[in-house]
């Protein structure tokens, strides 16, 4: 069994009667990249604050690296690097000075801190700008400096709160690559919150969907679809054509084909329109389907397997959230 980096059980946080986080349970394995996905105001940031002991919770327990956060926040903060949403720096200091200050706050001896700071600035690609004041930094540079901040304490867990907010697509890509590379290389657990589906889809091993303080679904992106779309996860779209070369037997009527398709195991719904069809099924039936069509005397002009991405999951989820 893999070691658990973050373990949350029954976590609840209320603000004046309004429940921000409702009975949340979640566990993240060591070395995993976990994406916390949810719309604004879903309670993602609040959860992260509770992980670090920056706010108190009403009930439940949080363990990070096996340490109880509510009792020993300092020990947790030694092991966890946290990049807050919209992080701020001391603008009148240079990037290096800012980083050096954080290193000293982490009780790193100043000689060692100087070396490490320079190394890390090179890693995040800021070595040219290290002596410029932070006030002259662009958004992307600040974000990278924030990552340097997180890395200087050599953390076991990195928590990033909306790290890609306000970055351009190229910047986002680079930033994500940097994080994934580091996590894989050093075995760092990463918890990543965002409301951008695609970024999460790109980098995360597992995803938790978080709406209105509740974790609705959790798992690999493919299995998430199964959790949310309990039936008819797979949709096949295809087109058939009549083959009139005289060799094959006469094609069976469309009606009969439909019946036979419907009888396939797992198929829930078959729709024919002209020569196009859509088949919804619980499992992947593309093999059986194509054989059946050919056997029935038709040609298969195209067959598209439609898988659900996070987009669909998200929208599905939103609808559920609204209707409840």
């Amino acid at each position: 069994m893999a070691e658990k980096s973050i373990e949350i059980t029954g976590l609840t946080k209320k603000y004046d009667g309004y429940v921000a986080v409702d009975n949340l349970s979640l566990s993240i394995k060591k070395g995993e990249i976990f994406g916390l996905l949810g719309p604004n105001g879903a309670g993602k940031s609040t959860t992260i604050l509770m992980l670090l002991g920056l706010t108190q919770f009403d009930s439940g327990s949080v363990n990070v690296c096996g340490i109880d956060t509510s009792r020993y926040p300092l020990e947790v903060k030694k092991k966890v690097g946290y990049l807050p949403e919209d992080v701020g720096f001391y603008n009148e200091y240079t990037g290096l000075q800012n980083l050096f200050y954080v290193a000293r706050l982490n009780n790193i001896p100043s000689e060692q801190a100087k070396h490490t700071a320079l190394d890390i600035l090179a890693q995040v690609g800021l070595e040219d700008a290290k002596d410029n004041k932070v006030s002259s930094y662009s958004r992307g540079m600040r974000q990278r400096l924030g990552l340097a901040d997180v890395l200087i304490k050599n953390p076991e867990v990195i928590i990033l709160d909306e790290p890609t907010l306000g970055l351009d697509p190229e910047g986002v890509k680079k930033f994500l690559q940097l994080i994934v590379g580091l996590s894989r290389k050093k075995g760092i657990t990463v918890l990543f919150s965002s409301h951008h589906l695609h970024q999460i889809q790109q980098v995360c091993d597992r995803v938790g969907i978080f709406v209105k303080g509740k974790l609705l679904a959790e798992g690999k992106i493919s299995s998430l679809a199964e959790q949310l779309f309990t039936k008819n996860t797979f949709t096949l779209e295809g087109g058939i054509s009549l083959i009139n070369d005289g060799v094959g037997k006469n094609p069976k009527p469309i009606k009969e084909l439909t019946d036979r398709l419907t009888r396939l195991k797992g198929v829930a719904k078959v729709d024919f329109k002209d020569n196009h069809f859509t088949v919804e099924s619980q499992n992947d039936v593309s093999h059986e389907l194509s054989r059946l069509i050919v056997e029935s005397g038709y040609g298969l002009s195209h067959l598209i397997k439609k898988e659900y991405g996070l987009d669909d999951i998200y929208h599905q989820y939103f609808q559920a959230g609204k209707s409840s």
Binding site: K77, V102, G146
Partner: peptide
């Protein structure tokens, strides 16, 4: 929040 995320 950046300073308080450090172990102090």
């Amino acid at each position: 929040s950046r300073v308080l995320a450090q172990p102090i």
